[in-house]
Amino acid sequence: MTWWRRAFPLELAEEGHFSRREFARFLAVVSAGFTAGIGYLWLRKKPLEGGSDPEPGHHETPVALGLASDLQPGQSRLFKFRDEHDACILIRTPKGELRAYRQTCTHLGCAVRFRGERLECPCHEGFFEVDRGFPVQGPPSRPLGGITLETRPDGTLWAVGELPKPTDLPERVATACPREARTEVTS
């Protein structure tokens, strides 16, 4: 008698209907599924949602965002970039700088919003800093996708492309976003 038989002395009438080899065949099919999944990711040209992988030579269609002077520090505006599903957020930081990011949280895809001095994902209380979109608190581990902005001579603001993903993701330090600051944002 094997050790697990002694540990779990249960006898089921149906247990003989499913052999180890059948179970191993099922596992092999699951294994093939994993391989097919990786192959699909390999062959897929369009980036996954939240991913940043524009095709070489791909030209974005610029999107007009209105007058740059319309947005005051601390204000935000939503817009669509590539298509009607590509929700983005334009913000003017408290320092007065304009930034635009994909609105999709890199954790589970909820829409982030601009609160105080940070971008906040209300689903799981993830926070991103506004300068480069880095996650500073909560479950997200990847930065928000950034959108390239262009101010034209007539004062209009345009979204013209996608920023490359920053690779120098800093360690989350308490000084970057102290936990006690959270009460200031949510209150």
Binding site: L41, W42, L48, G51, D53, K165
Partner: peptide, 9 residues
């Protein structure tokens, strides 16, 4: 892939 790195695929 979500981070934009496809080289290891």
């Amino acid at each position: 892939v979500l981070d934009g790195h496809r080289t290891l695929l």
